[in-house]
Write a protein that binds this DNA or RNA. Structure first.
Lengths: 152, 152
DNA sequence: AATATAATTAGAAAATAAATCTAATTAAAT
DNA sequence: ATTTAATTAGATTTATTTTCTAATTATATT
């Protein structure tokens, strides 16, 4: 199977705006509507597209306070890791969690209303999770760049 | 204007899958198709929805190596900050860039093919940007959680 | 190079969904 | 209680997606 330049350009446009009609895309790609349609279906079927989503304005829904939390576990045994990761998945303030190299074990992206809500989150939710050794939080002063679009 | 529980549930569904038809949404929300349609248009108009996008599978497009880079500037004068932020916006390996509190000034999320590509990025692109004092990179071993859906 | 095979594309037709309109209902304000 | 505004439902129109058939293009085989 081939994944050519037209496919790349198609994904580029869909990553910018997935609500474009196939006709609009067909103009940009110099193809017929059917050709665009078939390519999109092919890309979806082969797993290139994870999903289509609406991206919500976090200021509008009052969740504009963003923090990154480094977390160290007390031990790195299989069961500690598994249970920590399961707990983190339950916390809906945590949008992202990465197991990373370096001084800390995990990096979390946390979204809440304000500093007070963040304190609540830390005290009542995060630090009640077992096996956490230490944490280190960094607060987002300004979002300089934020895109979901992968460049191919 | 009111932003009620139905709106919240509607955004919840749209954040999961924006390709659902209004009929499917109307079933989930126990509303008519028109009511769903009007609510979506209202939310869009009032700025609740930033945009609709396709989320692409990074393994499929061979950009599965993820790194977070801490960056310190040599100075924090206005012009240094402005020019750094402008440069970062140009780099398409950088999906996200945050000005943060703490030991470092910035946190970058970088997406490339592999470690070799990351090295290339650091040497040929990132560190050629002026005003960078020091950097510290963390590599993603595993993506434990990753969602774009804000919980309201 | 000629032929067969598969993949991609285009255009028309059918099916489906979005958008608009009018009227009815519900909620909020006076 | 009455007016006003907002929301909703159902019907209709408009637009888009999906399917179908045929033509074209690319790839593989002899």
């Amino acid at each position: 199977m081939i994944f050519d330049d037209i496919d790349k350009r198609l994904l580029f446009y869909l990553q910018k705006d997935s609500k474009q009609t196939n006709k609009e895309l067909s103009n940009k790609l110099n193809l017929s509507v059917t050709a665009v349609y078939e390519r999109i279906k092919k890309l979806e079927k082969r797993g290139y597209v994870d999903k289509y989503v609406a991206l919500i304005n976090k200021e509008k829904v009052d969740k504009a306070f963003v923090a990154f939390c480094h977390i160290k576990l007390v031990k790195h045994s299989q069961d500690y890791v598994v249970s920590f990761e399961k707990e983190v998945n339950r916390l809906n303030e945590v949008l992202e969690c990465y197991h990373i190299s370096g001084d800390y074990d995990y990096l979390l992206k946390v979204l809440v209303k304000n500093m007070e809500a963040f304190r609540e989150f830390m005290v009542k939710k995060l630090t009640t999770i077992n096996h956490i050794g230490s944490t280190h939080s960094m607060f987002v002063i300004n979002e300089v760049k934020h895109t979901t679009a992968i460049n191919m």
